[in-house]
């Protein structure tokens, strides 16, 4: 599944023509790159569509591509270099698109409501 998603996205991106480079662009090389998979149980094919950066670190809302009662969503916290700092398994399904972090509480969206979470 993960490979199919990557190939489909790559093909979609490859279908566009080349964007002209700006002479004045600043080229940035990554100073660090990492993966969230190491912070999660082995089974999920992860999809992260919401993340927040605070002074305490990075928070990701991780959802499988197809949500159902049988699969879990997670909030993953890392430090600024990607070291795992905690993973919470959500007890119910929420919108995968939005996460807010305020001190030690999280807010997420249900379909018609906002649920405040304490982390």
């Amino acid at each position: 599944m993960r490979g199919k998603i990557a190939i489909a996205l790559a093909l979609a991106l490859a279908s566009v023509t080349e964007y002209p480079l700006h002479a004045q662009s600043i080229k940035l090389a990554p100073v660090k790159d990492f993966d969230l998979q190491s912070c999660l149980p082995a089974e999920p094919v992860i999809v992260s569509q919401a993340f927040v950066v605070t002074a305490k670190g990075l928070y990701f809302l991780v959802s499988p591509p197809y949500t159902s009662a049988a699969v879990s969503q997670y909030i993953v916290k890392t430090d600024f270099n990607g070291a795992c700092a905690g993973t919470i398994t959500l007890s119910e399904h929420v919108s995968p698109l939005w996460l807010s972090v305020n001190s030690d509480t999280f807010s997420v969206l249900k379909r018609y409501s906002t649920v405040r979470l304490k982390g």
Partner: peptide
């Protein structure tokens, strides 16, 4: 997705890869 924090810029993809600039 992209986010900034101070002079840090983070770029993620949907499959959990994260790059920091």
């Amino acid at each position: 997705l992209i986010r900034t924090f101070g002079n840090q810029l983070y770029v993620t993809d949907k499959q959990g890869a994260v790059a920091k600039y």
